[in-house]
Design a binder for these strands. Structure first.
Lengths: 351, 351
DNA sequence: CCTACCTTGTGTATCGTTACACAAGCTGTG
DNA sequence: CACAGCTTGTGTAACGATACACAAGGTAGG
């Protein structure tokens, strides 16, 4: 496509022959230029240019050297959604930053939900893995562990052989829920999916333990803690589950339950995106926030700040960077701890 | 980290010895299981499990097979920003979709702006490249062409050896600018950066040819076409250049020029993100849209629809998919042409 | 003038796999 | 029963590069 496809890629041996030097001299010209005298180096470069030699074959080099030159990122989601979830992209930006610092590429391992996903993990030419939040029963986590390469899981699940990075979601949920539910009588949670099936809908009396996504589970537990501490019964808390982390989906789900006879007066959303979708629906339904409806989000995005949303601040980008550093065996350089969180009080809730 | 790091990765030969079969039998067990009888296959799998053999070494396999198993994406930006630019992520989602369909990984080539970036391209273990919009003088494009691998450039620049995918930005800009500028007296463009230096600021009498980003250049030309067709002089059109495609930056830049003595009464923004940032600033300044200020965007995102923004609709995701298909030599499967565009009229402009 | 040392170029073995050709055993058929 | 044809297992030779050890020549110091 780019060049004449009929002519195969030249090899180092051909360049060596053309430059009348040994193969090793060509190799050194690329890998350790100082090892080669100026005139010889020039002759090699000239021959390489003449033959259209693009430099050492990356596959051969990495086989011989024993390093792949890339960090693998496994997204527990279909590849496509990874780039559409704003939380995932913030996290990836952090991973990317560290990779760039090491001159490494970033290989996104394509996950489709098919059984062959575990093969993809085994086949990935990488030096280590970062796993983005997935469900406890996702087979890619054992597959990652089985490669024997350094790995880190972010968000969940725990695996005995793989280090883990996440904030204390339960404690944070408890704190933010206390704000949302302060004077609530009809509380509700706007939740991430419970499991990989990603069934959406409104549930009552849901046992948090049902959720196989650790993040979802812990946050539900945190809400339960807060509600029960305020003297409520968990049975009273409805959980509206979104299949995806998108404002759009929260909007349509909320449009339905806000119109119902038993509309909530407080909603704790698991992300700012979901919260903002809900607020859009509330606006259309003529409900005032926080007057008719207290709302909280999660992540403290720019949009949340603009909308005056009470939320949990966490730095996903720093968490991504930390994961990559752990995989690469690099010392942490941040002054702030990436797994800290902080409650941000704004106008969408009010005591 | 994941396993005992002291014990090196077992090889196929060791598994073969343990299972008392030849190396080839082990290889076939993984690559073509049907080629091996059931009992033998079981013996091999058992030996592999016992030794902790994670399957064929990806590097060795790809060297031998001549395929890397991954598609390279080159982002003309520092890696970190790629995931923060909503346009880039939409595009990437399209590329990712096609990769997943082929069982390929997606390798993001880290670009930092340093001269060594071209080495990264040469060293990437990939089967082809997709280049996301960059400037005409970016050395990564020649570097990609030099690899001899199939490649496609999206958005710009043109390179003689590399196929090119983009919409007719000039024509689209002409169309949308005609709406924005219909009854304008103090027109303005809210622009992407002109070149890789990404200098921000307000310019007058800017020659579009100065812009080395093709997308920026063509859209400026389209605006000039429209304004001159309406009898104006290009000198009258101010160009506010943002360093990044973010609402936040548009907001702060707009806050300054909307407060000036010569505030614009029509602004054509090069993305919905920029337009929405501007509208936020306009709202704070007490300006009515379109009463005091006509605004147009670009891309037709959900947020633009929600905000009633006149915009140019294009499908970046489909364009990403098409790029990947071209690189992989796959026939296009979409019924709609990914490089079509459409003017979407909403309330932010009015004749 | 001889030895030690640095610079620079050269073979050879090897990284871990798979393509290919071949051989042995078994089945079925005319 | 001979022979074709399928199944299943086995060696050998690459794929394209680099680590390592070594050799030849130059130079500097005693």
């Amino acid at each position: 496509m780019a060049n004449d496809p009929s002519r195969p890629r030249p090899t180092m041996a051909e360049v060596a022959r053309a430059a009348k030097v040994s193969v090793m001299t060509v190799s050194y010209t690329y890998a350790q230029p100082d090892r080669v005298s100026e005139p010889t180096r020039a002759r090699v470069r000239e021959a390489a240019a003449r033959l259209g030699y693009p430099g050492p074959h990356p596959g051969a080099r990495s086989l011989r050297r024993g390093r792949a030159g890339s960090l693998g990122v496994v997204l527990g989601e279909h590849l496509t959604y990874a780039f559409e979830d704003p939380q995932a992209t913030r996290f990836l930006a952090g991973v990317a930053e560290v990779c760039a610092g090491h001159g490494l590429g970033l290989t996104i391992v394509p996950i489709t939900g098919a059984p062959s996903d575990t093969d993809r993990v085994a086949e990935a030419a990488v030096d280590g893995f970062v796993v983005w939040t997935t469900s406890d029963d996702d087979p890619v986590v054992p597959a990652v562990a089985a490669t024997g390469l350094p790995a880190v899981v972010h968000g969940g699940p725990h695996h005995r052989d793989v280090p883990f990075v996440a904030i204390d979601d339960r404690a944070a949920a408890r704190a933010v829920a206390a704000e949302a539910l302060a004077s609530a009588r009809r509380p509700m949670v706007l939740s991430f999916p419970l499991d990989r099936a990603r069934t959406s809908g409104v549930r009552t009396g849901l046992d948090p333990a049902e959720a196989t996504f650790r993040v979802t589970r812990e946050r539900l537990r945190g809400v339960r803690d807060a509600w029960e501490a305020a003297g409520g019964r968990w049975q009273q808390v409805r959980v509206a589950v979104c299949a995806r982390n998108s404002a759009c989906e929260a909007d349509s789900l909320a449009t339905a339950f806000l119109a119902g006879p038993d509309a909530p007066d407080a909603v704790m959303a698991m992300s700012d995106e979901l919260a903002l979708g809900l607020m859009r629906a509330a606006g259309r339904a003529g409900l005032a926030v926080p007057g008719d409806l207290a709302v909280t989000g999660w992540d403290d995005t720019d949009a949340a700040a603009a909308a005056g949303l009470t939320t949990v601040a966490q730095n996903l980008r720093a968490q991504g960077a930390r994961c990559a550093q752990l995989v690469l065996g690099e010392e942490a350089t941040d002054e702030t701890d990436p797994i800290e969180w902080r409650l941000v009080l704004r106008d969408s809730t009010r005591r």
